[in-house]
Each structure stands twice: as C-alpha cells, then as structure tokens.
Design a protein around this nucleic acid. Structure first.
Lengths: 222, 222
DNA sequence: GTAATTTTTACGGTTTTCCGTAAAAAAGTT
DNA sequence: AACTTTTTTACGGAAAACCGTAAAAATTAC
C-alpha cells in the first residue's frame, strides 16, 4: 500500500475523516493534510527535494476563499501546475462536482488516476479508489459513470453559467455583450445573448431574467 | 457530556469525521448517524419510545437527492417537524450555508442551539459548539457573526420580503401591483412598488431587479 | 383645526428587456 | 463544389424597468 499520502481539502471535517480512514482502514502511516493548494504544492516540492516524496495526492477541487492571498485557487490549478512541472505522482480527485466532461478531461489530459464523488458513498469509494490506484488501475464513482450514459440530464456550459453570473452581478445584457466582445469571447452579440438566455429561461422554467437568476441560485448553478 | 448523539449527514466522509471526533475527543459513547432526514426522524421517535432518547442532534441542512423517495428533503424540514411534534432535544446545525438571516431564524424560531459553519474550522467549531451547548449556551461560528455585524445587517419588513419573493417568482412589477391591490394590501401602486424596490436596491447594493433578487437569495432573505 | 411631514400615487421620458423574424456567417454533408 | 444545417448577428416593435418630478392622500405635530 501507499506509504505517504497528502490530502488537500479545505473542510477540516472532511480532511479529518479521510485521514482517519486512510490510517485506520488502509494502514497508511504517513498521512499529511493541508487546507490550501499553495501549501500543497510547496509540500510536494519540499518532500521531493528531501528525497521523501509523496506516493499519492488526494485533492478536492473547490476551495473557499478567505483572506490569505493565493496563487492556486482550485484543485484544477494545483493539478495543472504539478503536471506542468513534471510531478508524476498519482492523483485522486475527491469532489462534489459531477460534470462528466470535466471528469473525462481530468483523466485523459491531466492523467488523474481516479475521480471520487463526495456523496453517500464518498468514503467507501475513496477507499476502493486508493486500492485500485495502488494496483495501477483507474477508478470513477458509479454515479458519475451513470451520468455519462443517461444524457437526459441537462448540463449547462460554462458560457451559460457565466451569463447567469453576469446577470446576477447587475450587468445589463448590453453590458454583457460589450464585456464578452472585449474579451474576444464568442458569441458576444446582444442578439445571441438574448437567444441563450431564452434557452435558459426555457430550461429553468423562468418568465424573465429576474426569475431566471432566482431559479439558477436555487439550483446552485451560481 | 452528552451520552447519545445522532448525526444526520449525507456525505459519509463528513459523517465519519464528525463521529470520530465526538467519540475520540469528547468521549461520547453512543454516536449514531444516518444519511436521510426521514430515517433521522424515525430514529429519534423510536429511541424515545424505547426510553433511550437522544441527548443531541447534529444535522446538515442540504441533502443530495437520490432515488429514494422522501418526506423530509432538508435539515430545515426535519427540524421543523421535530419542533412541531414537541421534540425538545438540543440541535446543532452544521452546514456550508452562511446566510445570516437564516441563522437568526433557526436560533430564534426553531430554538436551535448552535450553528456551525463547515469550513477550515468546522470540526474545531463543532467541538466547541457541543461543549457550549452541553453547558446550556449557544454557539455560532465566527465567520457568520462577522457577517451579521459587518457592513450593515438590515431587518426588512414582511412587505419588502414579499416584493422580493414575487419578483423571484417571475412577477412583473405591474403584476405585483395588480395582485396587491386585489388582496387589499397597501401600498399597491406601481409607483410605490418601484420606490420600495429602489430603497431595497440601495440597501442591498444592486443596480437592477435581477441583481437585487440575486443578492437577496445570497443573504437568505428569500 | 391647521400646518408640516411623510407616504402613496400619478405621469412622462429614457433605457432595457422581451419576442419575433430574418439575414449573414460558420460548420457539416454528400 | 454545392447544398443543408446550425450558429451568430441584425433589426424593429411592444412591454417592462428605470428615473425624475410632482400631485394627492394620509399621518403627525403643534
């Protein structure tokens, strides 16, 4: 089994739970944990230089902002920086996000070994994942593989979410159009934005932009 | 210290972490946990009938939906049903939501003893909360009390909240005016409604109705 | 009871959203 | 290459939101 594992997770409750499981149920002796991606990166580099590198990285994706200034704001950025700097240790992502396309991306491009969905079986899945990865195998939580098959579920693109986000921040449609075209993001015309928003109103069953944003908030999309 | 505690939490990682902490650090012998609010309710009732009631309830607020049909969909509903049925055991909420008005509501109306924010200090806070509640005191995580103090915490009238609520349900200002005058609620004129909404936009720092509703959602006003 | 103040309502003008239609551009097919 | 389909953009009119001003009504003060 792995001997030295780093857990990156901002919720201390979760970090504690994972660490305990790794130690008690998998008998891993050295389990370190940190609440920030920046610290995680320096730790990984540091231990490597000491000649005592980590065997495995388990990381969350989203981290709450607080008042410490950071370079790396998400698990995604941490992973990308690690791979960019040729750190090849196996990585397990442990997150509540269940977007199939993202998961695929992580596994194919960033060579992530496993994707565990935090949920009713999160910890059991993680245990399985660690064992699988130790054998050189991959692991993805069931609920996600199910999602990739049944495509009846609606999934919004980042573009749509950003529109909703702009709206919720008080931008008018005209202002959104101007902002997008300034940033070279397409489509950017007022007309296209209206069309997208109409599609979203249809999906989220809203009569107007106000209700649209309200419903999006309720669903946790923004 | 409490002797018999029920933890209601859908993420097994979190449930595991909390349970371990309660047992190991606070020496609580009987720690049960469940992933559904419905089960939580029946357990509480059941143990009470057996004459071995729980001393304390620790519950999350939001639960992921899966394919088991449920009566109680959230911690809020569980708590309300318990109080309605005269279950007076102390309750600690442990959630990621940090909406000041909600927290106040829980403490004042539902007689919740503590509100712990899941975050970098979630587990430490929870430990403190349990000890405080055992002494008959209240506990609210720091980050939340900061929010209630800092940058103006406003008490809105029911009228204002109902306006926001109408908006979030897709009503136009004209429709709201018509509805209010039909129900004999004053003021009901379009002009007055505009004026109120302008005041609200001022208070909640919003440029337009869309942002207004978004911000109101963030604060848990609606 | 009258004056002063506040609240509610009314109205006009400008901007933005909302909604349909349609052209222009891009992407995909054969 | 020619055609079809999809995506993006353009435009015009109606509805709604936005913003200022001001009259009417209700409250309060004296």
């Amino acid at each position: 089994m792995f001997k030295k594992v780093l857990v990156v997770e901002d919720l201390d409750t979760v970090a504690y739970g994972i660490s305990m499981m790794l130690k008690q149920e998998l008998g891993i002796r050295e389990v370190h944990s940190t609440e920030y991606c920046d610290k995680a990166y320096t730790k990984i580099e540091g231990e490597l230089r000491k000649g005592q590198p980590y065997d495995l990285l388990i990381t969350d994706l989203s981290f709450k902002k607080d008042h410490t200034p950071l370079q790396l704001h998400s698990g995604k950025e941490l992973i990308e920086k690690l791979r960019q700097k040729e750190h090849n240790l196996p990585i397990i992502i442990c997150s509540v996000e269940e977007k199939p396309t993202m998961v695929k991306r992580f596994i194919q491009i960033d060579k992530v070994s496993a994707y565990v969905l935090k949920g009713r079986n999160g910890l059991k899945d993680l245990k399985e994942a660690v064992m699988a990865v130790f054998k050189g195998q991959h692991f993805v939580s069931n609920t996600i593989t199910q999602l990739t098959k049944g495509s009846g579920f609606f999934e919004l693109e980042d573009y749509d979410v950003s529109l909703l986000s702009y709206l919720s921040n008080g931008f008018s449609q005209t202002e959104i159009s101007a902002t997008l075209s300034k940033e070279g993001i397409s489509p950017s015309s007022l007309s296209s934005i209206e069309k997208r928003l109409n599609k979203l109103k249809d999906i989220l069953k809203a009569n107007n932009n106000v209700q649209l944003v309200a419903n999006a908030k309720d669903l946790g999309l923004i």
